[in-house]
Design a protein around this nucleic acid. Structure first.
Length: 600
DNA sequence: CCCCCCCC
């Protein structure tokens, strides 16, 4: 089969002209920076006449390279691209093409060879080539910042066309003459800080265009100057910011750099058609797949708000700060449900009565008591009933039976059956990970055998008050005293405090189980066990014999505690459930697959 | 220059 490359298109593009949907061949690719989500690739392309490694792949197309879909020798149609002039490359100006959209006409394996005999395109060939189109220059900027530092009028936006702006993906600290045309995806509230280095205030915003995204932060004066002007979803021309390397630790924005607004920064709203600038880019993860992600992952998801809690007010233990939160439960057609925690004003104003669709960008995955949920950060963007295809699809699904669908709640609390949301580990793994050594205590699940129970003193007379489970002191006069309530009662309730040993193939652990967990293991409630203890010592002893060597799925909380100068792990049973062997086998098979790479 | 993002 013959492939028609757009011969001569490269020349036109390198001279700053436009060529509609050129067909080129990919001859090579090279990673030029970043890793993971921040990788960026350069392509060696040929139009059959010339070849040149001036093409950069917009990051959203990286997958095509990584998956091999876009391989060497592929013939592609470049559906959309922008060019940008890079300065300070050591050789003066250098034009690059950023590929925004691509159609693979023929895979590399099918083409299998270099087409034609392209010569390497050089600056010299540029000069010798007829200048068919005037070279687009970066937009003219005012020579100096406006004296009054007013933001808006400094730029005559009519002088700018999208052709004269720079793609966000091309920005770097080595080049300062640029104008971007970008949409504000998110804008934070103003925050103040005070530390050893000083104090101040700031807000940040996340910007995007066709080529990529970037975070911009405004401090102190710039914070005052731009905060009111910047509106989410609007498109602005922005220039003269300082670029620096982004600290990936604090953002999920896909860019190696971030920008800081300076006294010279100019921002003007784009008043013309800005439909070419994309709106927020989501990478929605189906809710059922969120459980597979690691804690602290920042992710996007969309779901219908099935339930919303009341507004809760609480005090942060660490900072003493007053907090307001509301927990909403999101469901989607993947059959998953997850809790999303809203904070502050967002929590206050939220109304879940009409079961809105919620799109969340940049929520953080957290884990508590072994179950996962999402939490909003200051930078998380929530949209209610957004005009997105995914949202309309979900609405239709929910209103036509989805509301009644059985869902697996990833955020189900421990104590009940947690729906298999957290992995089982072994005692040796718990030790390796030094679980329990932190301040907060750690939670883990484990498949283990109860090898010994300390039956003596496993049952005690507890304060009859519902919330108080304190052990009572027998006054020997028919009354029982609770030290905690500072009262005497004629009655009591039985509670359990069961010490036991649990073993698994890698080790064993002394554990403590309180009433609910102990009842689950012993298969009798505390009151019945209390009666046996009083009236049928043999049956009581037998109960603790019978439970020995039974296997449970334990959920533990473990924490290092010091008893008379000796550090010891205190491990409490949060829940103990009988083994569902079908589910257990599914876990083991999954592990074997993961470890061996062998399909079973 | 922030980088905290909370709680059960």
């Amino acid at each position: 089969m013959a492939y028609n490359l757009s011969e001569g298109s490269l020349e036109v593009i390198m001279n700053g002209g436009h060529y509609d949907k050129p067909v080129m061949q990919v001859l090579g690719s090279k990673k030029i920076q970043g890793s993971g989500a921040n990788e960026r690739f350069r392509l060696l392309v040929s139009d059959g006449k010339h070849s040149h490694s001036f093409a950069m792949l917009a990051t959203q197309l990286n997958d095509k390279l990584i998956t091999g879909e876009l391989s060497d020798y592929s013939v592609v149609q470049i559906d959309r691209f922008v060019t940008s002039i890079l300065k300070n490359t050591g050789k003066g100006e250098k034009r690059v093409m950023i590929i925004l959209d691509i159609t693979i006409i023929a895979p590399g394996t099918q083409v299998g060879k270099k087409l034609g005999n392209p010569s390497t395109w050089t600056e010299e060939s540029a000069q010798s080539a007829p200048a068919q189109v005037p070279v687009a220059k970066p937009a003219p900027m005012p020579a100096r910042p406006m004296a009054n530092h007013s933001a808006a009028p400094a730029l005559d936006s009519s002088m700018l066309s999208s052709q004269m702006t720079h793609p966000i993906a091309s920005l770097s600290p080595y080049q300062n003459k640029w104008v971007i045309k970008a949409r504000v995806m998110t804008k934070s509230a103003i925050r103040t800080w005070s530390n050893a280095k000083g104090e101040g205030k700031l807000f940040s915003m996340d910007l995007c265009d066709e080529s990529g995204e970037i975070r911009a932060t405004a401090f102190r004066n710039e914070c005052d100057r731009f905060y009111d002007m910047i509106q989410v979803d609007k498109v602005y021309y922005i220039s003269r910011c300082q670029l620096k390397t982004a600290n990936k630790q604090y953002t999920s924005i896909k860019n190696d750099y971030e920008m800081t607004l300076t006294p010279d920064t100019v921002i003007a709203e784009c008043m013309e058609d800005a439909s070419c600038v994309p709106t927020i880019k989501y990478e929605f993860l189906p809710i059922s797949e969120i459980a597979n992600k690691g804690v602290d992952t920042i992710l996007d998801t969309i779901g219908v708000c099935k339930m919303a809690s009341d507004l809760q007010e609480l005090t942060a233990r660490s900072t003493g700060k007053q907090l307001k939160k509301r927990e909403v439960t999101l469901v989607d057609s993947s059959g998953g449900a997850i809790a999303l925690t809203l904070w502050g004003k967002e929590a206050e104003s939220f109304d879940g009565n009409a079961n809105p669709v919620i799109a969340a960008k940049g929520a953080r995955l957290t884990e508590f008591n072994g179950s996962k949920s999402l939490s909003c950060l200051a930078s998380t963007m929530l949209r209610l009933n957004p005009d997105l295809p995914e949202a309309h699809k979900l609405r239709g699904w929910y209103d036509n039976g989805g509301a009644d669908m059985d869902v697996v709640n990833i955020s189900a609390r421990a104590g009940g059956y947690a729906g298999g949301s957290s992995d089982w580990i072994t005692f040796s793994e718990a030790e390796e990970k030094q679980l329990g050594s932190g301040n907060k205590g750690d939670y883990y699940s484990l498949l283990g055998v109860l090898t010994f129970t300390f039956a003596d003193n496993a049952v005690y007379k507890a304060c009859p008050q519902e919330q108080c489970n304190k052990k009572l002191v027998d006054q020997e006069n028919g009354l029982f005293r609770c030290e905690k309530c500072n009262r005497e009662y004629p009655n009591y309730k039985y509670r359990l405090l069961l010490g036991a040993n649990v073993s698994d193939p890698t080790g064993d652990q002394r554990i403590t189980a309180f009433s609910e967990a102990a009842e689950a293991m012993l298969g009798k409630n505390s009151a019945d066990i209390g009666r046996l203890f009083e009236y049928d010592k043999a049956a009581y002893a037998q109960l603790f014999e019978d439970v020995k060597f039974r296997t449970f799925v334990f959920k533990f909380r473990t924490k290092m505690e010091v008893y008379s100068d000796e550090a010891r792990l205190k491990t409490t049973v949060m829940s103990a459930t009988p083994v569902d062997y079908k589910e257990a086998n599914a876990r083991f098979i999954k592990n074997i697959k993961a470890l061996s790479g062998v399909e079973i």
